[in-house]
Amino acid sequence: MPKITPGTLGAVAAVALLLALPPILDLVGAPFYVDVATRIAIFAIAAVALDLVLGYGGMVSFGHAAFIGVGAYTVGILSTHASNGTLLFDGALPIGGTHSALIAWPLAVLASALVAFFIGLVSLRTRGVYFIMITLAFAQMIYFFFVSLETYGGDDGLSLWERSSLLGLDLYDSTVFYYLVIFILIAVLVFCRRLVGARFGRVIVGARENERRMNAIGFPTYRYKLVCFTISGAIAGLAGALLANQTEFVSPSLLHWTRSGELIVMVVLGGMGTLLGPVVGAIFFLLLEDVLSELTQHWMIIFGPLLILVVLFANRGLLGLLRRGTGNDTR
C-alpha cells in the first residue's frame, strides 16, 4: 500500500477539483470558462513535455512550439483532405485524409517525434547558448515552412471543417472535450513521473548534473538525451493535436518563436524539474494573460515584473511557494 502523505492528499484534491470544475462553472454561471480551462490544460501538457528536457535534462529548448505546430498541422492537414475528399499523397499508394482521432493523433505524435528526433540529432551536439540558438533556428525553419505552404493556407492558416472523432465521444461538447484533455494531461503526468524515477530519468538528471562524469562512468549520454528530446517533442505534438481540435484552426502563429518562449516561462514560473510546476505555471500564465489583457493591451508591463519577482524570490517556482505555504515541502 502506498503511504498517504500530504502530497498524495494534494494530488487527490487537485484531481477532484479538476473533475468538479465543469459543474462548478455551470453553477456559478460561467460555463464558457470550461474552454479556457481546456486550453490551459493543453498548454500544461506541452509545458510538462518541455520540463522533461528543460527541467530534468538541463537542455534549454527554445523551439518547442514547433512540435506543437507539427502536431496541430498533422491533424489539420489530414482533416482537410478528409473533408474535401482529396488525396494527401497521389501515386502507387494513394493516401487520403482522416477525421479519426485514433489515426490522426498517433500520426501527429509520430510526426512531431520524428521532427524532434532530427532536430535533436543535430542540436544535442551543442551545449548552452548554442543549443538554445540551434533549437530556435530549427523552429524558425519549420515556422517559415508552414508560412510558405500555400496548399494548406500558408500565412492565413487552415480551418478545420470538423473536429476529430473518437470512439463515439462528442468532442464538440466542451465538457466532454475538457474531460478528455484532463485525462490525457493526467496520463502524461503519470508517464513522466514514472519516467524520471526510472533508470532513464536518472541518466537524464545525471547528464544535467555532470555530463563528463556520466561519460566516465560509462553512459553514452548523447543517445539518452536524444531519446528524451524525442519523447518530449512527441508529447508536445500531442498537445498540438488537441489544440487544433479545440480551436478548429491551425496557423503558423502556433509555431511563432514567442510561443516557445512562453512555454519556457510556464516551466520556469511553475518550477523546473517538478512536472507539476509547469502545470501550475501554465494555469498562472494563461489566466493572468486573460485577465491582464482585458485591462490593457500592454499586459506584459504588469506580467514582466511579476515574473521577475517569482524568479528572484521563489527559486523553486510557484509550486515551491505553494508547497512551502502548505508545509508540504518535500525536498
Binding site: A198, R199, F200, G201, V203, N210, M214, I217, G218, F219
Partner: peptide, 30 residues
C-alpha cells in the same frame, strides 16, 4: 567530479547502473 545534488547512494548507484544493462527503462523506479 560528482553529482552534487544527488544523494551519496544515488551517485554510486548511477555508476552501477552504467554497467548493469541498458538504461532505456521508462517505468520501473530505479
Amino acid at each position: 567530479s560528482i553529482f552534487p545534488r544527488l544523494t551519496v547512494l544515488e551517485n554510486v548507484a548511477l555508476a552501477v547502473q552504467a554497467h548493469a544493462g541498458h538504461s532505456f527503462v521508462f517505468w520501473r523506479p530505479a
